[in-house]
Design a protein around this nucleic acid. Structure first.
Lengths: 234, 234
DNA sequence: CCAGCCTAAAGTGCGCACACTTTGCGCATC
DNA sequence: GATGCGCAAAGTGTGCGCACTTTAGGCTGG
């Protein structure tokens, strides 16, 4: 299975990537980016032709995405893109909040690992740079987005738990709940969120799991409220 | 041997269940019950023959279970049963604890729904009966197990959130983390856990999300410690 | 006797064909 | 004009075969 959170499964790795995985990745991307509207039926034959593969790998991908919860499946009727109510999306952030909070608590309980430390410090350093001269340019927003992904990925890595990783990947692979989805790019929210990152890392490093957990919960929950503000009813 | 011995035509619904789903269910059951040891490779052809179906539905099921996290997948090497370290299992309970805690908080925030109320009261009534004259007989243990499943299912239903339901289902579908896995059947633990259930329900009904969340977290966490005690190192 | 290569067997990747189910539309009936 | 009815087209379910990759021995040269 694809083990990256925001991963591009580059075919340049030398390994031949099976079509079934390619189809799964492309389809996932289409769904997450809204390219295929929720509720729409996914036709095996059409999808196969559009992607230039036969039905067999397509079917494998569809079954996988259904197991991930991105698609609904009905016998003899095929797959449809699952719909999530706005309320459901909001509660998706709650899920992220408690799970990433747990990840912080577990991370704080672990002895420091140089590799993990490097991940955190890279993420924070990138964020520091962005925040220093933040003016809201596209490049800066992209850089901040990246530092955000790096930081949250570092937390998950630091927790070092396969099941949590799986569970979180599922929770993150939802429209509008993704890590890439930075809600507000105005200066103060960005500064504040970056400051949160520093505090969370400090708490983890200090072994203060309780503080790290609460900080992360609030950190993610605040994004939920930003999101709700941005799209009041939809 | 195609459709030779399919006696029942799916008694409940009359719908034909696709082989791919049947295979997925059987395989999931085998894995969860330990019938296939962790780390073992799953051979498509052998599995297909054992279940009397062709490779096609088998492949679909394998891809689905891989997406669920029960199997690992490697290109051109196929599927293996995922291994979970004892530590991982322990942290599986942590995941359950925070997620079911969240479910309780959400449930408490909802207006009461008669159907949900009925679910809770059925589960609790069954538990009351069992606890009343508990002697540890097999039938009683089975009944308690059932009341436990019913109660936790009621909580998830009460939270009424598709994403949370998906996420929890995944977290519960793990060896040793399953709801069915009642660790201790001695009298006091059973009484205590059943009392927890009552308190949790009271808190939800009273709209006290904070109390409900904390009670559930402790409730599940205590099972983790029981489990760790029971299988010290392994 | 060991290391490395070479080859055959085993196993996965995937296209394809055909059976069965669902869906949509036109026609007959009331 | 509304309501079924039935048939054909579209779509899913699954068996099957062949190409390509991995794996496991056995053989050969050092």
């Amino acid at each position: 299975m694809n083990k990256s959170f925001e991963g591009y499964e580059s075919s340049s790795s030398g390994k031949a990537v099976p079509r079934s995985l390619q189809v799964a990745d492309q389809l996932r991307e289409s769904i997450l980016s809204g390219g295929i509207p929720p509720g729409e039926r996914v036709n095996e034959v059409q999808l196969s032709q559009r992607l230039g593969v036969s039905r067999t790998p397509t079917r494998a991908a569809l079954h996988a995405l259904a197991a991930e919860g991105l698609l609904d499946y009905e016998t003899n009727r095929g797959f449809t893109v699952r719909e999530y109510s706005p309320q459901s999306v909001a509660e998706g952030y709650e899920i992220r909040a408690v799970l990433e909070g747990l990840a912080c608590r577990l991370a704080a309980a672990r002895p420091p690992d140089p590799k993990v430390t490097a991940l955190f410090e890279d993420a924070l350093a990138l964020g520091d740079d962005v925040v220093a001269g933040f003016e809201g340019t596209t490049a800066q927003m992209e850089a901040y987005r990246q530092s955000n992904v790096l930081f949250h990925t570092a937390v998950i890595t630091a927790a070092d738990n396969q099941m949590l990783e799986d569970t979180l990947r599922l929770a993150l692979a939802r429209p509008a709940t993704s890590l890439r989805n930075i809600v507000s790019f105005s200066q103060n929210p960005v500064r504040r969120r970056h400051d949160d990152h520093h505090r969370i890392y400090d708490a983890i490093r200090a072994g203060d799991g309780w503080r790290a957990e609460l900080l992360m919960r609030e950190h993610v929950t605040s994004v939920k409220y930003n999101e709700l503000e941005r799209r009041p009813a939809r």
